[in-house]
Design a protein around this nucleic acid. Structure first.
Lengths: 343, 343
DNA sequence: CATAGTACTGGGAACGCTCACGCAAGAAAC
DNA sequence: GTTTCTTGCGTGAGCGTTCCCAGTACTATG
C-alpha cells in the first residue's frame, strides 16, 4: 500500500542512494556531482565519501534525457574513400582527435558509410540530438552534407577545405598549396627544368590546391617546361599519368606527385622506362606515408601534421559546443618537406 | 491550475504527439515503433502515417533509460600500438565491423587510449552500462582486461587470440600458423634450404603463431638450415634481425618475416649487403599491406581477410547481445599467400 | 529587535520512453 | 444466451537525472 519497502537491489547505485548514504537530498548530490559551488564543505565531503563508497557513476541516459545533451560527437568517414586510410593519415587524425576529446567528457561515435544512406543517417543522428556535433573527414568537393548540418544549427568541423563555401563551415586543413609550392621549388632549385606534376582529383580541395602550389612555384620562371597530368591520388592513376607525361616529353627530369601512392606508381613506370631516380628524374610525393619510406629509393615527400589536424578538429568542435554562436576561422597547418633519396 | 494548455513547442516530436496525431495512445505507438504484432493493420497504418508526417524518431536517451540498453558497442584500440594501424589492417577491420553493425541499430563508440587510464575507463563504460559490449583489438598477450570484462558479465569480442585462456572469451583471428607454414613451405618448395624467420613479439599470439607455422613447415625436413631472429613487427626491428641473421649465416637464401614492415626492413639490409632479392635471397612478408606493393621488388606476402575479421567480430558481439548465456567458439579465418616479385 | 540579505538545502516536476496490467469487444465454445 | 478466450488498445508507474522554487537558519544592517 504505502511505498515503503521496495529496496532497490538492481545494479548501479543511483543519486538517491548516494543521497541516503550521505544523509542529504538528491538535489545536493546532484550539485556536488556537477560541481556547483553552493555546497558547504562539510556536506561536500560527506557526499564525496558516499560517492566513493558506493562507486556511484551518473547514468548517462537519465542525464541526457533532461539536459538534452549527449556528450557524444560523431566522426563521419566516407567509406567509399578507401584512400582516406592511406597511412598514416586516418590513424594520426583519429589519434589526435581522440586525445583531445579524452580531455573532456566527450565520446567519439564512429560512422563509416557512403552515399545517400550515410547522409540520411548522419542527418538523423545530428538532427535528432543523438549526437551533439559531427566531424566530417575527406568529403568530395561540394558535398552538401556539411552545409545542411550547419544550417540545421549543428556544430560541425570539417577536415579538408570544402569547395563551395557559400555557408562558412569551420575546417582544418594542411597548407596544401604551400607544401606543393615548396616541393616544386625544391625541384627547381636543384636544377630541374622539365618539371611535371601528377595531380589529385580536381573536385577536392587537396587536389586543386596542390596543383595550385605547383603552378605558383613555377610562375614567371622562364625556361621551365611544365607538364600536368591528371590523377586521383591512387597508385594506378599515378602510373597512368606518368606514362602520359613520358609520351609528351621523354626528357622530363622531375615529377611532383600529389600523393605518395601516385609517386610510387610513377617510380615504377619510370624504372620500367629505363629512367633512374633521382639521377634522371627526381620524384617528390605527398603525405609522407609508410609507402614513402619503402620505395627504392625512398621517397622525398611533403608531410602533413596529421595528429595535430585531428586535435584541431576536436578543438573546433568543442569551441562550438561551448558557444554555439561563435564563428570560427579555418585552421591551416604547415607542411614539411621530408628529404629522402628520390629528389 | 489545470495542466491543460502548455503546448509543446520544442524541437522533435514525441511519442505522445504522434499518438495524438494518429488518434491512438502512447502505448500503441510504442508498439508500432518496436514492431509488436498486437496491432491491427488499420491502426498500424494510421500510426505509420503520423510518424512519417511528423518525422518522428525515438529519443534514444529516454528509451535507454528504461530498457537499460544503450545500443552502443565500444571499440577499444590500444593507442600505444601504433603498429595496429599498419595498413590495411585497422581500416579493413573497422570497415567490416561498421558494415556489420550498420545492419543492426548498434552504434560504434571508438576509444583510443593506453595504459591504466584506458583500462579504468573501459571498465567504467562497460560496467556502468554506458555501452552494451566491447570489441578489443590487438592487446598484448596476457592483458587482464578482457577477462575482467567477461567476468563482469559483459559481452566482449577480441581480435587476436588471447594468450592466457583461463577464461574463455570469444575471439577472431587469422590462421597465423597456417599462413606462416604455407609461406615457409613455399620457400622450401622453390628450393631454398637456408631459411630464416624474423619473428614478431613473443608476447602476442600473432608473433608466436607465425613462428610456430615456420617451425612446423620445416619440421622433419632434412638438410634445411633454420635461423630465427627476434623482432617486434616494426621496420627497425626487421633491419636489426636481418643483420643478425646475415652475421650468423651469410649464405642465407630465404627469409620469412612476420610482418611486411619487417620484410621491407630486411630487404633494405639485404640490398645494402649486396644481396639480390629474390635471386640470392627470397623474402616473404605478412599482412599484404600497401608497403608490400611498393617495395622493389614488390613483396610476396601472406594476406589476412581483415574486413571479414571485422565482420566476424561484430557477429560475435551481436550473438552475445542477443543471448548472453550462449558461449561462442573462436573464429579462425584463412590467410592467402599473395605472390609478388620477392619470392 | 525587527528586517533584509545570504548561503545552503529539500523536494516536486519534468524529460520521453517501455512495460505490466487491465478492460472492452468480438469470436468461439457450450 | 451465458461463459471463456483472444485480440487490440489505453493507462499508470517508473527509469535516474536536472532544474527551479521554496524554505530554513544564519549573519549583517538599521
Amino acid at each position: 500500500m504505502t511505498s515503503l519497502g521496495r529496496v532497490r537491489t538492481t545494479g548501479r547505485p543511483t543519486l538517491e542512494q548516494v543521497a541516503a548514504e550521505a544523509g542529504v537530498s538528491r538535489g545536493t548530490v546532484s550539485r556536488v556531482v556537477n560541481g556547483s559551488l553552493e555546497v558547504s564543505t562539510t556536506t561536500l565531503h560527506a557526499v564525496q565519501d558516499a560517492i566513493d563508497k558506493l562507486g556511484y557513476v551518473p547514468n548517462h541516459a537519465a542525464r541526457s534525457l533532461v539536459t538534452r545533451r549527449t556528450d557524444t560527437v560523431l566522426l563521419v568517414v566516407s567509406e567509399s574513400e578507401a584512400r582516406v586510410f592511406d597511412e598514416p593519415f586516418f590513424a594520426g587524425l583519429v589519434r589526435g582527435l581522440g586525445q583531445e576529446l579524452a580531455k573532456t567528457n566527450l565520446q567519439l561515435n564512429l560512422m563509416m558509410a557512403s552515399g545517400a544512406r550515410q547522409r540520411d543517417r548522419v542527418e538523423q543522428l545530428v538532427g535528432n540530438g543523438h549526437v551533439d556535433g559531427a566531424v566530417l573527414i575527406s568529403l568530395h568537393g561540394d558535398d552538401p552534407l556539411p552545409r545542411k548540418l550547419v544550417e540545421a544549427g549543428a556544430p560541425v568541423a570539417l577536415n579538408g577545405r570544402p569547395l563551395s563555401s557559400e555557408v562558412s563551415v569551420p575546417f582544418v586543413d594542411a597548407d596544401n598549396s604551400t607544401g606543393a609550392r615548396t616541393a616544386t621549388e625544391y625541384l627547381y632549385q636543384s636544377g630541374r627544368r622539365r618539371i611535371a606534376t601528377l595531380t589529385g582529383p580536381q573536385d577536392m580541395a587537396a587536389g586543386i590546391d596542390r596543383l595550385d602550389g605547383y603552378r605558383s612555384a613555377l610562375k614567371a620562371r622562364r625556361g621551365v617546361t611544365r607538364l600536368v597530368a591528371q590523377g586521383d591520388f591512387g597508385q594506378a592513376s599515378g602510373e597512368q599519368a606518368m606514362r602520359e607525361v613520358l609520351e609528351r616529353d621523354s626528357d622530363v627530369d622531375a615529377v611532383f606527385a600529389a600523393s605518395d601512392l601516385m609517386a610510387a606508381g610513377a617510380m615504377r613506370v619510370l624504372r620500367a622506362a629505363g629512367r633512374r631516380v633521382p639521377e634522371d628524374v627526381a620524384v617528390i610525393g605527398f603525405d609522407d606515408s609508410d609507402v614513402a619510406r619503402n620505395t627504392e629509393p625512398a621517397l622525398t615527400s611533403v608531410a602533413q601534421p596529421v595528429q595535430r589536424m585531428g586535435a584541431e578538429l576536436a578543438r573546433l568542435l568543442i569551441a562550438q559546443l561551448e558557444d554555439p554562436t561563435r564563428s570560427l576561422d579555418p585552421v591551416i597547418l604547415p607542411t614539411e618537406l621530408v628529404r629522402r633519396g628520390s629528389a
